[in-house]
Amino acid sequence: MKPYIYTALALILLFVLNGKAEAGSMAGGEPQFSAEQIVSFAKKVEKTVAARGARVFILARAGRPASEMPEGFHYTHVAFGVYSTIKTDDGRDIAGYAIYNLYQDDKQADRSRLVQDYPVDFFASVFELKSGIVIPRPELQKRLLDVIASDTYKKLHNPAYSVVANPYNNRYQNCTEFTLDIIQAAIYNTADTRVIKANNRAYFKAQEVHVSPLKLLLGSITMPDLKTGDQSHGIRTASYTTIAGYLKQYDLVQEELLVTP
């Protein structure tokens, strides 16, 4: 009987401890690099893709140390960069890239919202100055622009957030699944979620998340943004790597880049 009591006591104690650890990751993080480093790197990313004529590109950032990511994951957040005319607060029009994100809500972890910001904001609190970038072929860029500028972009947002959302159904969504859904909407010229999910199932190979059942159980108890009700036969989610792989498999990539300082 004693071991059960010990285990129960340990679990209670550690749920409390884990709550604190989770809160630390929810804060959005303090900047790890100086303002000079962030601005220089963000500008380097912009100039790198601009030199290649990219109107739309997919970019990823590393918000956590690589050692803390599950096997097969190299980035923690993915979004679109769109070449734009940006009106500044003093009324000037300048050329640059705007970033179109699905961000997890920092006050309600199981919800998300769509936010448009800029490269400096995107990289403001990264743990590593690196960015994975996919520049799609021009025809796909054109179609992505059409979707991002249309009502379809907002229509495809599902605010029910799970960090390991299954891209093969629409119960939950995370940033990578939203990115994939927008890509599919562009490729198939559709705003119909059923069509998008059918094509995800047919052509997109999701990233398997290797987590022990116990760890998953404990995580789902303590993390409101970890939901597995949309999963079957293991945990699968979209990642930067699998999205890039999907586009490469179907010859839709103009160039893939890794930008570092």
């Binding site: 884990n18 599950p70 993915v78 699905l102 961000y103 940033c175």
Partner: peptide
Amino acid sequence: VTLTLLTMSGQALAQGSIQHSAQAF
């Protein structure tokens, strides 16, 4: 053991798509 599991479960599964603190920046 449990501390290790819980810490890893929280860290390993957090994707970090939270909006970074541009305001702080």
